[in-house]
């Protein structure tokens, strides 16, 4: 296997196109290098994306945020404006592995590894993140929702890579949160993950809601029927229980070494509800902070 560390997008796309299926792009490498070690993948060429300016850094503009696809979880956690705006996305990114893994693991890698249980993906879907893809055919923007097709399978074309993620500036009354269930407190793959974002009016009425679940289907899923349980009303416990029930109903998980189907189904609802509660609390806090400052 050969290693290449291109300095530009053109160079990277060129290398990936040339080598075709034998090439593999790498960001943090925290999944990929494990796959190399176990022999699960045996690429001829590894294209390291971390030296390409477009994939690095976080921009916080007036319109919103641009997060480079190869930016590490630790850098994301250190970006205070992003944490302020999208705490759910940041807490999900920070849950990817240990402190050591955080030093390397990226949103781009977490998404392209295409695990149904990836922590950052439900949070990104809930937040409405869009990613920029570049490949031999050019550039396109795709919602995170549409990237993962199944375990290990993405919508990316050959030699196409994710360059960055875009998140808007959150509107007033927005809140997001991510919750996951693991048997330990750290160092586990999610048995269930739930990302929720809401936007509420100052009155408390829910104006918008997105719910996404991880590890309960072949890919992370958006559950609009669960979100609809909150829409247009002040979310009380009854509405939240409805959201939980619909999230559980949408779950279609498998039995595996990490958890049973029955367990995942049940806990999907619990976590969706808890994430919604936290997102609503954050949304309420935003209104409170705004009325205090004015």
């Amino acid at each position: 296997m050969e290693y290449a560390s291109p300095r530009s997008l053109d160079e990277a796309i060129g290398l990936l196109s040339q080598a075709g299926v034998d090439a593999r792009p790498m960001a943090g490498g925290t999944d990929l290098l494990v796959q190399l070690r176990t022999g699960a993948r045996r690429p001829e060429l590894l294209v390291d994306l971390k030296q390409i300016p477009g994939l690095c850094g976080i921009d916080c503009g007036s319109q919103g945020f641009r997060i480079g696809a190869a930016v590490s979880g630790a850098e994301i956690g250190e970006c205070l404006p992003l944490r302020e705006a999208w705490p759910g996305v940041v807490e999900a990114a920070e849950l990817i592995g240990s402190t050591q893994i955080q030093g390397r693991a990226s949103l781009g890698g977490n998404l392209c590894n295409a695990s149904p249980a990836a922590d950052s993906v439900p949070a990104l879907i809930a937040a409405g993140a869009v990613c920029t893809l570049i490949g031999p055919a050019g550039r396109r923007e795709v919602p995170v929702d549409d990237i993962v097709r199944g375990p290990g399978e993405t919508a990316l074309g050959e030699a196409e890579i994710i360059v960055d993620f875009r998140l808007p500036r959150p509107q007033d009354g927005t809140g997001d949160a991510y919750q996951r269930m693991i048997p330990r407190t750290e160092m586990d793959i999610a048995i269930v993950g739930a990302g929720v974002s809401v936007r509420v009016a100052e009155s408390g009425e829910c104006l918008a809601c997105r719910v996404a679940l991880g590890a309960v289907a072949a890919r992370p899923i958006r559950v609009d029927e669960a979100a609809a349980a909150l829409m247009g009303r002040r979310p009380d416990s009854e509405a939240l229980e409805e959201l939980a029930a619909r999230a559980s109903a949408a779950a279609d998980p498998i039995d595996d070494k990490r958890g049973t189907r029955a367990y995942r189904t049940r806990v999907a609802g619990v976590l969706a509800r808890r994430a919604a509660e936290e997102a609503l609390r954050r949304a309420g806090d935003r209104w409170a902070a705004r009325s205090q400052s004015s």
Partner: peptide, 24 residues
């Protein structure tokens, strides 16, 4: 130890063989 029906250990690493970590 979690074995599949063929007798193959499914959790042969520290990720899925869950020993306590400091925060546990």
């Amino acid at each position: 130890y979690v074995f599949d029906d063929s007798g193959r250990l499914e959790n042969s690493g520290f990720l899925d063989y869950r020993m306590p970590v400091a925060s546990d």
